[in-house]
Write a protein that binds this DNA or RNA. Structure first.
Lengths: 122, 122
DNA sequence: CTGTTACATAGACGTTCTTCTATGAGGAGG
DNA sequence: CCTCCTCATAGAAGAACGTCTATGTAACAG
């Protein structure tokens, strides 16, 4: 609904053979939830800081303390917390607390799409 | 600059052994231009419409006319044009005109990062 | 209990994004 | 020349995002 110039659908309002050379059949779309999931995943990776965070997590053999993240970036502590929260919302990392500290690590049970996206981070 | 609670740097203002169990060494950061490039690439894939567009392009054996995109999505023609423009800015697609029509296709000379990102689209 | 340290949350502010309507540019047909 | 069609650009409105300061919460130390 609500197109301005709906491309000639089945009606073929177009008179001549103006359509020649255009309008090939296209692939069936990806199921919407899957497309949405992919978009969400990529949005989580659409910030340089979060890319660096994932890089750190991939290189680390142990969970990383938030204090290490705040030390690594010239950003305020709430901003760092915000980015880590986004990575968690996207299902890429998980966190736990030990004493005063909070640690983050890559989720061990990544779904295939998330794992593939993570593979793009150096 | 401008941190509220700068994590204990070299100064070690911290008195006791409160730091025990925290603060492990972290990986060297990704070069900033590379992190930026990755973020830009992922931002291009951070919208369901653009995911679908790339899916169509991957499935197609020929360049796809803009009219096919406008027919495939329930969006206004300028919005479709906008999304295609974003894919082009990200270096993922190229376009050319033939007669009245504009055609888009996946760039044949994708850089490795872009190719890897595209591989995530079904 | 009081103070300190680590982290998260809330709210504000400016920027970017997605979408729309309206208009412009350029080719095709009569 | 004039009209129609296709696509791109311009501008505006509303949502989302990244960043900050200020504040709240939980755990440890004395």
């Amino acid at each position: 609904m609500a197109q301005t110039t709906t491309a000639p659908a089945a009606e073929a309002t177009l008179s001549g053979d103006r359509m020649k050379g255009c309008c090939q059949p296209v692939a069936r779309p990806i199921p919407e939830p899957q497309a949405e999931r992919l978009a969400t995943l990529h949005r989580a990776l659409s910030d340089p800081t979060r890319i660096q965070m994932l890089h750190m997590l991939k290189a680390a053999s142990q969970p990383i303390c938030v204090c290490d993240f705040t030390a690594a970036f010239e950003l305020s502590q709430p901003t760092v917390s915000h980015h880590l929260g986004r990575l968690r919302e996207a299902g890429l990392v998980s966190s736990f607390r030990r004493g005063i500290w909070a640690f983050y690590r890559l989720r061990p049970d990544l779904d295939p799409a998330a794992a593939a996206a993570l593979a793009l981070v150096p």
